[in-house]
Design a protein around this nucleic acid. Sequence first.
RNA 1: GCCCCAGUAGCUCAGUUGGAUAGAGCAUCGGAUUUCUAAUCCGACGGUCGGAGGUUCGAGUCCUUCCUGGGGCGCCA
Length: 574
Amino acid sequence: METVKDMLSAWMRAGFESALAGTDADVSRVAVVPSAQPQFGDYQCNDALALGKALKQPPRALAQKALDACAPNESLERMEIAGPGFVNLTLKSDWLARQAQAMGADERLGLPDVGRGRTVILDYSSPNVAKPMHIGHIRSTVIGHALNRIHASLGYRVVADNHLGDWGTQFGILLAGYRRFLDAAALERHPVEELERVYVKSYELTRTDESWLAHCRQELVKLQAGDPESRAQWNRFIELSLGEFNRIYKRLGVTFDLFRGESHYNDSLKDTVALLEAKGLVRESEGALVAFLEEEKLPPCIVRKSDGAFNYATTDIATALARFEEFDPVRIVYVTDERQQLHFRQIFSIVHRLTGRGDTLEHVWFGLMRLPEGTFSTRQGNVIRLDALLDEAERRALDMVRQSSPGMPEAQQRAVARAVGIGAVKYADLSQNPQTTVTFSWDKALALDGNSGPYLQYAYARIASVLDKYAEQFPGQDWRGVPIAFNEPVERALGLALCRFPEAAARAAELFRPSVLADYLYDLAQTYSSFYQNVPFLKAEPGVRESRIGICALVAKTLRKGLAMLGIETPDRI
RNA sequence: GCCCCAGUAGCUCAGUUGGAUAGAGCAUCGGAUUUCUAAUCCGACGGUCGGAGGUUCGAGUCCUUCCUGGGGCGCCA
């Protein structure tokens, strides 16, 4: 289905195009946007102002000419020119009702199929092997998965790849420490925790003991040379870590299509560097092989260290090339924290020089999460484990459910608490533009009221309950046969909000910002709550009743689909 | 020192890429439940959009400069 915004934009653009035929004005950017305020109608077009300036014509007259040139449009109630030259458009309420109904009947809920035949690769979560996942990992994981569901809903073929940190110098330290410090019983109980303890202990020793440091380097060389015993142990580290990661992913409902760690590209690093050399993109400097990026005004980027070993830059370049080769994606999206901005800019430049496809690469970054008392670090011991965060979220939600639904069976209370607790944590990260530093607080991450996941889930559950009550109170009757109508102002506002769902979803995908969709859903839920509180439906007169139940059902469908696109569940009861 | 990012109500954040009177949540205060789930709704309070210049019909948004905070800057990832 075409979105209302696209329909009106195309219509408006055509008007400007024929009104301005013969001039060299660029009308390709003409579009409508949702009105700033309800009194200005439903959508507005501001382009007469800019075009008037470019053509040295009075904007109001230009807007009038464009409107005169527009084809008749059956969706519109009013078209007005206001202020310095805004075009305000008001939709017919009955057209809006038909549009909403059509959206509800559409199996895609009106979402445009913009991704058909296109592949997007999403690189998210990507934790390091042998380290527990902590709250710093949640943003990449949750935002990445939401982008996954959003793109898939718009018809894209999504390849979600967990680019595990399973290679690098830390494994020398870990292998050496494993042989000397391992507590086998502890490994049995909490494998990843024990691996981390061993790593930290070994790392500390490298700082005071030269010979230990040399030993660690040797272990790394052995691993990289393919020593069977080292490889076997390394494989075990990965296996143990994946076991633990997968438990958390399952809890979060987060999925991947591939788990290709950095090591997956080891064999192609040599060829990648050879290619860079052949293309003359690198030269030797102080013993290392370096790409100089003066044209892009970026600092140099090392692709082979002076000891001959490759580094993460090499791996990331090789990874991008391999992904182009295998999947031919329209986009490769990396979801990481802000510290990697420069790194990816360098990588993107180099890949662009190699392939000319640099604009395919997209870095979606988010601000670091920190604690009120400062940054967290393993050494300070103030790391909050992801497990612990989720436990606390579910505990708080369970308190709430027990209070509000004491009659609910225990098992169901727990299931609801799980969905609500996890939903609250996810929504806290998804509902805001991620590009700000976040100070973690339990109360904020686990908020259950206001602009929160549970608010949206609550709105959904109330509708599910209403639909059941309708079936109970009016057996044999069906609201589905009665067309919906928007009579009350709040109903019309709800209708307008419903019709904007596809626009919000498309925009969220375009900007790689789930928060755009979250904002939309919150607005929809708010409008619905106002409707719910102020307009009777089960007690409304027959006919009106059915129309309103139909509106409720449509809101429920939209909330359910929208929340699913954010990776948030919608229990029928809360 | 250089580069990147951020600064909007007491707090946490929106602000559709330059448009009309800058909006939500939390907190505070006042109301609403014989009625569809009060995790709700209705209302009030709250702003020099970090400061100063500039660009133009029009700036929270663009340019310059300064202040504050965060991050980064060739052999960690």
